[in-house]
Design a protein around this nucleic acid. Structure first.
Lengths: 144, 144
DNA sequence: CTCACAGTTTAGAATTGTTCTAATCCCGTT
DNA sequence: AACGGGATTAGAACAATTCTAAACTGTGAG
């Protein structure tokens, strides 16, 4: 049986609302709903589609456009991080800290690798006029 | 003035044809044309669109569908490597050896980093049942 | 050298993921 | 309760890519 926010996560709502306010985002019904789902457990990896399905399964109607808007706003606000590993889908990661990923392409599955685990040495200075923004490591894995 | 293959690169054609045969691909006019462009100079990074434009500028008509087909066939044959750095475009790299990339998103520019330059240490064992396929490093840079 | 066929190419339609638009809605303030 | 500007929405629009079915072309057999 699907339950509304009010029935299930009173504190989740409070937390989400606070988080949104803190990020300078108006805590609308949709944003609170999505934030509650995203930040309930940690280290989640979602696509717009998957989150849209999830929120629908929770019995709440949020348009796909809003899911896209929200994912981007959350990302800009530093609440999410976009992970680019697949040419055809965008993933968003609730873990915004320094870390890397395993990626199982066949199933679209991402697994976090803590930031301290992997060390990247020898990154050369970028060409003149360019600054390093971030170093991403993707460990592509397959069944086998 | 646009020139045909026959006028410009006699040996380029021979090389491309041999390379295609060796890869088990029938050396059709289109594939030879594309291979000649791709492998004329080394370390090129193209998108389907850019390669399609380039071949058109060379005065040869190859459909966009064929460019896509060919890029994928070349990739499967190990002649190219697909580089995933941007959510909206696929890049193909003529350098199939072990190496990494700088990526300047604002201009869609990729720059190779030789394989020996960067060392990635501490990659953990993947979860049971999974094997490491490849470790990709993308150094995201920006103007500044 | 020619034929025939399997593999290729092609134009255009279709798909997919994402963004845009313009109308409606609702959060926070008054 | 009313207002105003941001937020949401359905649906159209878009861009990159893939599919489809028909036309074409290397290549090996004869």
């Amino acid at each position: 049986m699907a339950k509304t926010l009010r029935e299930t996560g009173k504190d989740a709502v409070a937390t989400a609302t606070a988080r949104l306010r803190h990020a300078g985002l108006r805590p609308t019904r949709q944003r609170v709903e999505l934030a509650s789902l995203l930040f309930k457990s940690c280290d989640r990896h979602v696509t717009a589609e998957s989150l849209h399905d999830e929120v629908a399964d929770a019995g709440v109607k949020v348009s796909l456009a809003t899911v896209y808007n929200t994912l981007h706003q959350f990302t800009e606000a530093g609440l999410l991080r976009q992970v680019i590993v697949d040419a055809s889908r965008s993933y968003f990661d609730t873990n915004t800290g320094d870390h890397q990923h395993f990626f199982l392409e066949s199933e679209g599955m991402l697994i976090d690798i803590p930031g301290e685990t992997i060390a990247v040495a020898g990154v050369p200075a970028p060409p003149p006029g360019l600054l390093v923004d971030r170093v991403d490591v993707v460990v592509r894995v397959r069944r086998g």
